[in-house]
Write a protein that binds this DNA or RNA. Structure first.
Lengths: 221, 221
DNA sequence: ACGTTGATTTCGTAA
DNA sequence: TTACGAAGTCAACGT
């Protein structure tokens, strides 16, 4: 990884055109060739960047870099002053472990249909439809189909999604009638209102509790 | 801006839980207090981060940082070795100018109603409704109102948005009937299916061609 | 302060 | 490879 602190001007042209007037910034070149230009605020996002794979061409005097990427993307950096220029070997990145995302929630709910009610049985996860897969399809104690949309945070989008699925599923005489359940760790009031106005019931899910069912030793009490 | 190259282990807990095993990484602390941890690949995204506002607390021996943000977000960085530690004053960031985003597409389409058909006339941009502005409102050759939703990339969300507007507009006896057109540089197949099932027509837009109409000198041939 | 919308979104995953 | 949905989405803008 090469870290440059320098006064520079930047032009990007590709999916859009963008220009950065001259100022002092951090220019980061990573081992995969990617380049990013950071200002002294906003943790997450560089002002400009080029994702790998890309190629850096330096001008003879080293004052201009032309970075070309896929699809005519081009980044041009014109340096007017260098304050520091250091290169480091960081070695292998062992990678990030995440825990608590939607996929895990879906997995846990598939394994514990009783969360929704007695006698529920999983039909399948990612139940396919013409407009995409329904997260979970169950049959309730009475054998009626129930489509479940799983979200970490329940917002209106999720209700819209489930509504589209239900429209489609209820057009199928072999499945009809299909109920809908909107399951999430938190459900925004607006989403709840919209869901209920469409007879979709809402189910709050306790991720830590469900995880505890599978790993009783992790359980706190 | 403070740049640390160090061997470290990181734990994040907040909206999810995440763990980074020990490895050498770049830790960046910006002037606004935000912290990000970068590996030697992926231009754009840090492995872990904390957005401002947040507070950094160093342990007595300086080997552990606890960064706390809003909403119980916490990042804990445990350092085992420091390779470099430099602080720079970058000064003011004059800011980024962009060109070619949705706003421009909307502007170009407003100036060129013939993109949609002969005899179309613009009623107005950002046509106001109770649930927000419609990107473009036209009258077609027959004088019928047409609401246009403009996107750079046409996905299902945009169709939903337009659908909500159309519902509302068609409830107004002075406007009714209002047709809908979904205009984008690319339209995803699923979005197209949903749009057409609701009698919303799809219009692909060539940004460079439209821009060429206004700046004939830029045109290539 | 909150909600909505766009983004050079990026990133993962399944078809 | 493509296409779609999620993201610790982030960030800007309007109410």
């Amino acid at each position: 990884m090469r870290l440059l602190i320098a006064k520079c001007e930047v032009d990007y042209s590709g999916r859009l055109d963008a220009h950065l007037p001259e100022a002092t910034r951090l220019v980061m070149v990573k081992a995969d060739g990617s380049v990013s230009i950071h200002a002294d605020d906003r943790a997450y996002k560089p002002l400009n960047w080029m994702t790998a794979p890309c190629q850096i061409t330096e001008s003879e005097d080293g004052r201009t870099w032309t970075v070309t990427g896929a699809n005519d993307d081009m980044l041009r950096i014109s340096f007017s002053e260098f304050y520091s220029d250091d290169t480091y070997d960081l070695g292998e990145e062992p990678g990030l472990n995440k825990d608590g995302v939607e996929a895990q929630l879906q997995e846990l709910l598939a394994a514990h249909p009783e969360t929704f009610g007695e006698g529920w049985q999983l039909v399948r996860r990612e139940y396919p439809t013409a407009i995409g897969p329904v997260d979970l399809m169950f049959r309730d104690a009475a054998g009626q189909h129930v489509a479940v949309e799983v979200k970490r945070r329940g917002e209106i989008d999720g209700v819209e999604q489930l509504t589209r699925y239900l429209e489609l599923l209820n057009a199928d005489p072999l499945l009809r009638p299909v109920r809908g359940v909107f399951a999430a760790q938190v459900i925004k009031p607006q989403a709840k209102v919209v869901a209920e106005s469409r007879s979709i019931s809402c189910q709050l899910v306790d991720y830590n509790f469900l995880r505890g069912l599978d790993n009783p030793e992790d359980r706190l009490f």
